[in-house]
Simulated assay, not measured.
Amino acid sequence: MKRHYWYILLTYVIMLFSGLVGYRLLLLLGVDRGQVIGYWNIISFAVGLTVVLLLLRKDRGDFDLRGTPASPSTAAGWAIGGIFLAFLAQIIAANIEIQLFGIKPGSENTQRIMDIVKVTPLMIFVVSIAGPILEEIVFRKIIFGTIYKRTNFVLAALISSVIFAVVHQDPSHILLYSAMGFTFAFLYVKTKRIIVPIIAHLSMNTLVIVIQYVYRDDIERLMKDAEQLQSIIGGNFL
């Protein structure tokens, strides 16, 4: 692995755990307790993204994956199509979780994020832009790319996607996040351009966050109605 990739991974890890100090620092500075998490995430992700992009300047014109990168027009097509592929992967994984494992729909990670966004709207920057860019650089370009060079797509995608899922701290939905990781890895290999899964990822996150933010009350009502209906149907078969 390239030396600056290790620095990028270190930056990402420090960023993830920086809240242990950052939250206390903001509290000492008088920031409202309810907004501490949101504001520190904004600060840490902004700094982390800046550092990572500066480190990636060494990769200018250097493609990690073997093969010829897709043309700009082809890459654009896959980036747009990748949004639908990611949603399709989510739907399939969610149905498997529900039907085979009895896992309720809805992500605790998404719920936590939406609670923070509600209090600190600027957190949308982290969810829609900084987060997806950093995740694709770390999990696809570096972790997946490094393993892929030495093994094959399935093994590289499996390892990087499971790590990607674990980092989201939502154990019941590891399958769902792993499915997304596989989709983004496929887009990366198909086009040999990391910008493609980045665009698909940030577009998907932006759509989800906007829908959740604008229609949150309606979604919560529909979820409750669905749970009640499931209870009624289940009761009739007992």
Rank of each mutant, 00 (worst) to 15 (best):
R3Q: 05
Y5E: 14
Y5Q: 11
Y5C: 08
L9E: 05
L9C: 08
T11W: 07
T11G: 07
L16S: 07
L16K: 09
L16I: 09
L16F: 03
S18Q: 11
L20T: 03
V21L: 15
G22P: 11
Y23Q: 00
R24D: 15
R24G: 09
L25I: 04
L26G: 03
L27K: 05
G30D: 05
D32G: 00
R33S: 15
N41H: 13
I43R: 05
L49K: 01
L49P: 03
L54R: 01
L54M: 08
L55I: 08
F63C: 07
R66Y: 04
T68P: 09
P69I: 00
P69M: 01
A70S: 15
S73K: 14
T74C: 02
A75L: 09
A76L: 15
A76G: 07
A76N: 02
W78I: 03
I80F: 15
I80S: 09
G81Q: 05
L85V: 06
A86W: 07
Q90I: 12
A93K: 03
A93W: 05
A94Q: 12
N95R: 12
I98A: 15
I98R: 11
Q99H: 05
L100I: 10
G102Q: 02
P105R: 15
P105Y: 07
E108Q: 13
Q111R: 12
R112G: 13
M114D: 09
D115I: 00
V117I: 13
V117S: 03
K118A: 12
K118N: 10
L122A: 13
M123G: 00
I124R: 01
I129M: 10
A130R: 08
G131S: 05
E136A: 10
I137G: 08
V138W: 00
F139A: 01
F144M: 15
T146I: 08
I147W: 09
Y148G: 00
K149A: 15
T151R: 13
V154S: 13
L155R: 12
L155A: 13
A156N: 09
S160D: 04
H168F: 06
D170K: 01
P171F: 02
L175I: 11
L175F: 06
L176V: 04
Y177N: 01
Y177F: 14
A185C: 14
F186E: 07
F186V: 10
L187T: 06
L187P: 06
Y188D: 00
V189K: 12
K190Q: 10
K192D: 02
K192N: 14
R193D: 08
R193V: 10
I195Y: 07
I195M: 10
I195V: 12
V196F: 13
P197T: 03
I198A: 07
I199T: 14
A200H: 03
L207Q: 01
V208H: 04
V208G: 13
I209F: 14
I211L: 12
R216Q: 15
R216A: 13
D218S: 08
E220C: 06
R221I: 12
M223H: 09
M223K: 11
D225I: 14
D225Q: 10
A226N: 11
L229H: 10
L229S: 12
Q230C: 00
S231C: 08
S231R: 13
G235F: 01
G235H: 04
F237N: 11
L238C: 02
